[in-house]
Computed example of a mutant assay.
Amino acid sequence: MEWTGIILAGGRSSRMGTNKAVLPIDGQPVIERLACELQKATDEVVISCGPSVLYAELGLPLRQDIYSGCGPLAGLHAGLAASARKWCLVVSCDMPFANAALFRYMAEQAQMLEDQRRGGHGEPVEAVIPYVGDRVQPLLAMYRRSVLPELERALGEGLLRVNHWISGLPAKYISGEELSQASGLPAELAVFNMNQPEDYKTAQLYAEQQNLGQRNC
């Protein structure tokens, strides 16, 4: 199954105090790491980055928000709207350990759902979303482009909370155990995101301990 990888990089990084996407893990910016891992799993990768041109040097298509100032949902919308493929995988630019093996596994789950849909088995499902501990991870997930009308409705009405939006989607949820097996990482690291300086220090430490910092592209 062909699918599009979307890196969400349009946030303000207010809690970090600097642009999270370009923070290096042993010399390689997080967004570059993610782009490399996505390119191992799919042939179409785009960056949803609002009006920014900071990432032009990565050589990937940049998608600007159609609904400006509406947060991650607007970034997801921009990426989905620009893709011609039925399924897209979205990953936030502050998730340094999400890897190609995990992306492939999620795509396989989407393919299974698509096969079931074509065969008329079960209810149509429009998302594949990890669930680790007591938290869903809607910014590391696969979405079918058929969610666009509902997404546009939410954006048009100013309903911008991601978790509220996904609560209305028919979705398959992937457990932490599945994530760990697929990625080769503890589930908490597979979905680890850097919101604050302390999180960045933790990411650097883990990368050094596990020798994950070497450039992977």
Rank of each mutant, 00 (worst) to 15 (best):
V45K: 11
L23T: 11
E57Q: 06
V53M: 03
V30W: 01
K40W: 03
G75R: 12
G69W: 08
C36W: 13
R33W: 09
D26I: 00
G79R: 14
L34G: 06
Q39M: 15
A35Q: 10
G69R: 06
Y55L: 04
G27K: 01
S48D: 03
E37G: 06
I47M: 08
Q64S: 15
K40A: 12
Q39Y: 00
S68D: 04
A41Q: 10
G75F: 13
Q64R: 14
A56N: 06
Y67G: 00
G27F: 03
I25G: 01
C36H: 14
R33K: 12
S52F: 01
H77D: 13
L54T: 14
L73W: 10
A78V: 11
G71P: 00
R33A: 08
P72G: 08
P24L: 02
A78N: 11
L54P: 00
Y55R: 05
C49W: 05
L58D: 04
V46C: 10
H77T: 12
L73G: 10
L58S: 04
I47W: 07
S48C: 04
L58C: 06
D65G: 02
I47N: 11
R63V: 13
E37V: 12
C36F: 09
P24K: 01
A41S: 15
H77A: 13
I31M: 02
L34K: 10
L60P: 03
I47H: 04
P72W: 06
L60T: 03
P51W: 07
G71Q: 01
G71I: 01
V45R: 11
P51L: 09
L23F: 05
A35T: 11
E57L: 00
L73Q: 11
P29L: 03
A35N: 05
L80H: 06
E37N: 07
L38P: 08
P51I: 09
D65W: 12
E44P: 00
A78C: 11
S52E: 08
A35K: 10
E57I: 00
L80F: 09
Q64Y: 00
C36V: 07
E37T: 07
I47L: 12
L58E: 05
S68N: 00
R33G: 07
H77R: 15
L60C: 03
I31W: 02
L76R: 11
I47C: 07
A35L: 09
P51V: 09
L34P: 09
L23C: 13
C49Q: 04
C36Y: 11
I47A: 07
L23P: 00
S68R: 14
P61Y: 04
I25D: 02
L80Q: 12
G75E: 13
E44Y: 01
A74K: 04
L54S: 13
P24H: 02
G69L: 05
I47P: 09
P24Y: 02
D43G: 11
L23V: 14
A56G: 04
I66M: 01
V46P: 00
G71C: 01
P61I: 04
Q28T: 15
V30F: 01
L54C: 06
A35D: 08
P51C: 09
V53R: 15
G50H: 13
L54I: 01
G50M: 09
L73S: 08
P72H: 08
A74P: 08
A41H: 09
K40R: 15
Q64C: 07
I25M: 10
L76S: 07
Q28N: 00
P61N: 05
I31D: 03
L23Q: 15
